[in-house]
Amino acid sequence: MAGKPKLHYTKGRGKMESIRWLLAAAGVEFEEDFIETKEDLEKLRNDGSLLFQQVPMVEMDGMKMVQTRAILSYIAAKHNLYGKDLKERAWIDMYVEGTTDLMGMIMYLPFQTAEVKEKNLALIIERAKNRYFPVYEKALKDHGHDYLVGNKLSWADIHLLEAILMAEECQADILSAFPLLQAFKGRISNIPTIKKFLQPGSQRKPPMDEKSVARVRAIFNF
């Protein structure tokens, strides 16, 4: 029997968090080997574990997988969360790229100066309300299904819920003009595996604080 996937990253969210979300939603238990110092990262680099000298890295199915998108695609396909055909996969990819763009903007906020952070926070809220969330609201309205693609839970739904919760950390009422997304949030949050991941004590990571920002800066030299 294959062992549990092992995730190599810092204790923070970063690019690994979407991988944690997808594994948890698929009901896959995983282990984490945290990178806590610059030396931990160098050890992974020096022993040949990191194909491009970068993390996230996930050990699963006999592979040491790197590149976030490749890891996520593999997990989604393996656990039947990637649509039934190429067209559905294309829609899932488009929706995921949109939420990735939005989450990327949020992800880098803690590393910015107060002045830049204030400006970018306003931009994130504006983009969420006017560029990204209207797309998902319209998709749910147009097809009348509970999920974004194929009326079946997919990677796109899991990624969107993660993005919604991150956006709500920026502005609590950010979904006020999107009733279908509010309902979507409730439905997807109550899927048993996801509900478990959202409970205290799970492997979901909290927002970055000053201490975790300092740790990441020290590990990655920025």
Score class of each variant (00 low, 15 high):
residue 185 K to F: 02
residue 202 S to W: 03
residue 58 V to P: 11
residue 120 N to A: 01
residue 142 D to F: 08
residue 68 T to M: 14
residue 10 T to W: 07
residue 194 I to Q: 09
residue 151 N to P: 09
residue 133 F to I: 10
residue 220 F to W: 07
residue 51 L to A: 14
residue 188 I to E: 06
residue 145 H to P: 07
residue 191 I to G: 06
residue 35 I to W: 03
residue 65 M to S: 05
residue 122 A to Q: 05
residue 6 K to C: 13
residue 6 K to T: 14
residue 53 Q to W: 07
residue 64 K to E: 13
residue 215 R to M: 15
residue 145 H to Y: 12
residue 135 V to R: 06
residue 34 F to A: 11
residue 149 V to A: 11
residue 156 A to N: 07
residue 212 S to T: 03
residue 141 K to C: 10
residue 218 A to Q: 14
residue 18 S to R: 12
residue 222 F to Q: 12
residue 69 R to H: 09
residue 207 P to G: 01
residue 113 T to W: 02
residue 111 F to D: 04
residue 154 S to I: 01
residue 93 D to K: 02
residue 148 L to R: 15
residue 150 G to K: 12
residue 150 G to L: 12
residue 4 K to N: 13
residue 222 F to D: 08
residue 32 E to V: 12
residue 202 S to A: 06
residue 96 V to C: 11
residue 84 K to R: 01
residue 54 Q to R: 09
residue 172 A to V: 13
residue 75 I to V: 15
residue 130 N to P: 09
residue 37 T to P: 12
residue 163 A to F: 06
residue 90 A to I: 10
residue 108 Y to N: 11
residue 45 R to Y: 13
residue 90 A to Y: 05
residue 163 A to L: 04
residue 16 M to D: 06
residue 181 L to S: 07
residue 155 W to N: 10
residue 162 E to P: 00
residue 113 T to K: 07
residue 147 Y to A: 08
residue 92 I to L: 12
residue 156 A to C: 05
residue 2 A to P: 01
residue 173 D to I: 04
residue 186 G to H: 06
residue 121 L to E: 11
residue 220 F to C: 08
residue 101 D to H: 08
residue 94 M to L: 10
residue 116 V to H: 06
residue 11 K to V: 09
residue 165 L to Q: 01
residue 156 A to V: 05
residue 158 I to C: 00
residue 171 Q to I: 00
residue 54 Q to M: 14
residue 135 V to Q: 03
residue 186 G to C: 05
residue 194 I to F: 05
residue 156 A to S: 06
residue 38 K to C: 13
residue 180 L to T: 11
